[in-house]
């Protein structure tokens, strides 16, 4: 099907690559998204609403932000994502862009959990403590040095969700 986007023009995507997010992103009504992973923008991906050309989020694999990122999903979340016990879950973090790269933050407190098998997604909200909504993407302690995991190719699980590999 064709998806119209404000930033990237008209795209043709396979229906099977459309992710359904029954509850949408918090604060937004749209419920169908596609993930696009242009090589030229790695490690960033972009999460585009199918039914609203203007709505798109920059996202990254949470693994490229923090190596040991882990979220324990609740039984209710498992059910909503249609996950079986052993199923793999992909966690993406929403990126808040900034003109200065050092001010770019990732929202690790509200990750998007995706069940790749069913193409079902849900934004999870985590109680405070471990992760924040404004985690600096480039670590200031390292003078913003690029880390190995940021340079690493995108995870295969993330690539497999992609509606385009251009």
């Amino acid at each position: 099907m064709n998806v119209t986007t404000t930033r990237f023009g008209e795209l043709t995507v396979e229906e099977s690559k459309i992710m359904v997010m029954p509850e949408g992103m918090l604060g937004f009504e749209e419920t169908r998204f596609i993930l696009l992973t242009p090589q030229s923008l790695a490690p960033f991906c972009w999460f585009q609403a199918v039914d609203n050309p203007e709505l798109a989020f920059v996202v990254v694999d949470t693994q490229s932000c923090i190596t040991d990122y882990s979220v324990k999903l609740t039984a209710e979340e498992y059910e909503k994502l249609g996950l079986s016990d052993s199923a793999e879950v992909v966690f993406l973090a929403v990126v808040t862009m900034a003109a200065d790269p050092f001010e770019i933050t990732v929202n690790l407190q509200g990750p998007i959990a995706i069940n790749p098998e069913r193409m079902l997604a849900k934004q999870i909200v985590l109680e405070g403590g471990k992760y924040t909504t404004r985690h600096l993407f480039f670590d200031p302690a390292m003078k913003g040095a690029v880390t190995a995991q940021q340079k690493a190719p995108r995870d295969r699980a993330v690539e497999s969700l992609s509606a385009s590999n251009s």
Partner: peptide
């Protein structure tokens, strides 16, 4: 999280390109 989503949704390609170039 809702507010962060709102902010994250208003990004432009130029900034994204800058971040990619930096990487």
């Amino acid at each position: 999280v809702q507010r962060e989503n709102q902010m994250a949704a208003s990004w432009n390609l130029e900034d994204l390109q800058k971040a990619v170039n930096y990487l």
